[in-house]
Each structure stands twice: as C-alpha cells, then as structure tokens.
C-alpha cells in the first residue's frame, strides 16, 4: 500500500547527493524546484508558503507549517498528543518497526504521522487532523486512526466542523491488519458525525494514496486538492507493472481527478484558508 514512501526515500537518497530534495525543504540556502528546475532562495520559498514562485510547484509541507498557514496565529491547540504507537505485532522487516518509529520520532519530533487538534480559521472554530508525510510516509496505523476517531468524537461533542489534510502513502504495513481496520473505523466515526449536520472537509495534498485515499479521505462532504497533488488508490508504479504500459501525462494528479469528477475543486495553498472559511460560513447552520 504505501509504495510512495519507498519511492520517495529512494529519491531522497539520490537527491541528497545532488543537494536538493523534491519533498520538503532541504537544509541549504538554495533549493532546486522539482517543477521547473529553477534554483530558488530558500527564504523566498518559505515566504511563499513553500510554493515555487516561478512555476507554482507546491512542495510538500510538514504539519507544523500547514497549521501555521491554516489556523489563526496561536489558536491551534493540539489534542491526543499522548497517543504513542506500539509495535503490537512485534514487526520486523529489514529494520524493527520499533526502530523505525524511534528514528522518525527523532527526525520529526512527532510521535506519529498525524497531528490532531482544534483552532480558529478566520475566527471560525474547527477540529482538524493534519498528516505529516515525514513520519513514515504519513502512513495510517492505529494511532493515526485513533486520532481521526477521537477528533470526530471531539467535534461531535463540541459541535465543530472537521477539516482533514492528508499526505499519506496509505495504510502502515508494519501494523498489519490493524492498519486495514482503520479504514472502516474512520468511516464509522464519520457516519456518526454526520448526525451533527456539520461539514467535514477533506483536503488532499501530495500524495494521498492507498488505504487513506480509499477510506475517510474520499468521503468528505467537500473534496479539495492542492494543485498537482498525486491522488489515487494504487501507486503509479504498481499500475504500470500491472498494465505493462506507461501512464499518461498528469495521471492521478489533482487536475486529472477534477476532470474525472472525483473532487470539487483545486485550491492553491495561499487560498485554502480563505476557501475553507467561505465554505464553513456557507455550510454551518447557526
């Protein structure tokens, strides 16, 4: 399921030598844009919400920066941060799952691949889950599923709209069947949440695939995607291997999904906050 993580890791490895990463912002002062290959001054990129000022390429951003972009300054309160993943299957592949968790914790400061909480979006209170691709490819295991479940339960209790920002390769294989179960779990809690008649907005960012795409992320009342975000069930490499042919240009990108009727709109990063505000104003019945 989460083939992306692998693909991206490989890319990362390769690109480290070239001093420039396609995802996230590297350490140096200058960044090469994967969209247009232009060299961009890192500060400028940050000022521009990590969107290439030359070609509008949307870099993947971490949960912290996403929160800064979406929520009114200082208003976001994290919830359920005490939830820590456990290695329930005692899983070991080329590395122990426990060690992977530890490494990614050290790398990101996060205990798992999503941050949950609530905050103000242009003064409208909303509950939210924000995925972080830097932690095990944003993959969904028990803790991520639990955070989504608890966030919707919190939103039911407090009568809040819910916005989820996904960036995930899919289910976390190291948690085996438990990760698969999160697909039904999250949909179950959303079914319950629907009784509140409050909006659930799903914002798909690059990439959203596998078990995340095939569960809660695809049943938002409103479906938004960032430009050129890769969104699909199977990863492109798996599909290529299956059908033995090259995939068409733009396949599984946000624009392709819009054209095929799978999402409501593509919104640039700089406009997402305002779009959400407008939607919430329209959809919430005071």
């Amino acid at each position: 399921m989460h083939l992306f993580r692998l693909k991206n890791n490989n890319k990362d490895k390769k690109d480290k030598k070239d001093a420039g990463k396609p995802a996230g912002i590297p350490e140096g002062l200058w960044v090469k844009c994967p969209g247009c290959s232009e060299i961009i001054y890192k500060k400028e990129l940050e000022r521009n919400l990590e969107v290439c000022p030359k070609c509008n390429y949307h870099f993947r951003i971490n949960s912290e920066n996403r929160i800064k972009i979406i929520f009114d300054e200082g208003s976001f309160v994290r919830l359920f941060d005490d939830l820590k993943p456990t290695d329930i299957l005692d899983f070991k592949d080329t590395k122990k799952y426990k060690d992977r968790l530890k490494e990614d914790y050290e790398k990101t400061g996060l205990s798992d691949a999503a941050v949950a909480g609530y905050g103000l979006i242009e003064k409208i209170e909303a509950a939210s889950v924000i995925f972080d691709f830097n932690f095990m490819g944003g993959s969904m295991g028990r803790v991520v599923g639990e955070k989504i479940t608890k966030t919707f339960e919190y939103a039911i209790e407090k009568k809040l709209p819910v916005i989820i920002f996904t960036s995930s390769g899919g289910a976390r294989m190291q948690e085996g069947i438990f990760s698969l179960m999160q697909m039904a779990r999250t949909i179950a809690v959303i079914s319950e949440y629907e009784k509140t008649r409050l909006p659930y907005i799903s914002v798909l960012t690059d990439p959203t695939t596998g078990g995340v795409s095939a569960s809660f992320a695809s049943i938002g009342d409103i479906m938004i995607a960032e430009p050129k975000a890769l969104i699909g069930f199977a990863g492109p490499r798996v599909i290529e291997k299956t059908i033995h042919q090259n995939l068409p240009e733009g396949f599984q990108r946000a624009e392709y999904l819009l054209e095929h009727g799978m999402i409501d709109m593509i919104v640039e990063r700089k406009d997402i906050k305002n779009t959400i505000k407008n939607l919430l104003n329209l959809l919430i019945n005071d």
Partner: peptide
Amino acid sequence: GLGAEERGQSEAIA
C-alpha cells in the same frame, strides 16, 4: 488499473 483509477477506485471502496 488505469481505468479503475480514472473511475474512482478509492471512492468506490470507501
């Protein structure tokens, strides 16, 4: 498959 993606495999499963 390509067609599966085109016609919303993720949405159909969800």
